[in-house]
Amino acid sequence: MAVSSPPPTSPSSSEPRPQARWLGPLALLAPSGLWLLLLLVLPTLVIFQLSLVPNIRPGDVVNPSGLDNYWLAFNSTNLTVIVRSLSLALGTTAVCLLLGFPVAYWIAILAPRSRRNLLLLGFILPLWTSSLLRTYAWITILRPTGVLNTFLGTFGLPPLELLNTSAAVTIGMSYSFLPYMVLILYSSLEKLDTQLLEASADLGAPPLQTFLKITVPQALPGIAAGSLLVFISSLGDFIDPELLGGASSMTAARLIYNQFLGQTQNWGFGSALSTILILAVSIAIALLLKYGDRDAYRS
């Protein structure tokens, strides 16, 4: 006798159920969202909360009680430190921009297309070595009897006392962050429509005017993004200031480090300083997004 198989269970309705609509995006976004929440949002909130507790140390109860740490951050000494950090970061950004733009321009527009990747690779190569090692190399170059002064000496030039100055810090940081600037500027200039340069010349603009009025504005998003990246990186760098900056090299990053890993362990003050830096950088990014992006006013 033939045994009839049970009818196949009816497949679920082909019409998507309401929750299916957000299930996909949720599945896609959850891992990175969780990652961001745990490793970015939560720590930032913790830092903010700690910053509201004066004199908090490991073992203390977190009991937010005021803005004292912030007032402390703005006393004259700490203000000097913050201003020094900002000016070092600005200086480094300016140097990277001035050195990086011609290089990126050359690679993106003038160099033969087939060589571009090789040239870029050459620029990124220094990033493969340890930043500490690179900084030590600068000590060897800049010290009083170092490579630079030996070189100057052979031409009968007076030696330069560069090591342990702000100039040395700027040199070291510019060297560290120049590749990032070049990469970002390159990707921006690579997209430049060269016909715009011809149009500018056609309308009577000599090369310099074309550069200032067309090339630079067209590359503005890249300039802004590269500058921001270099600025933020410089602001957070404490190896270069520490090793190259000499006796007056206290920066905000090092000050924060001292609050967490130094003797006083004043985590509250360190958190306040961190919050100030996070805010400053966030504002810079917000301004960039609002005004730096040309697409914002185009569409």
Binding site: Q195, L196, E198, A199, S200, A201, D202, G204, P206, P217
Partner: peptide, 20 residues
Amino acid sequence: VPAYRRPVNTVFQSYALFDH
């Protein structure tokens, strides 16, 4: 004489308008 000193002006095929 370079382009920027010639008394001619061009309408480009893709217009080449300055979008900034």
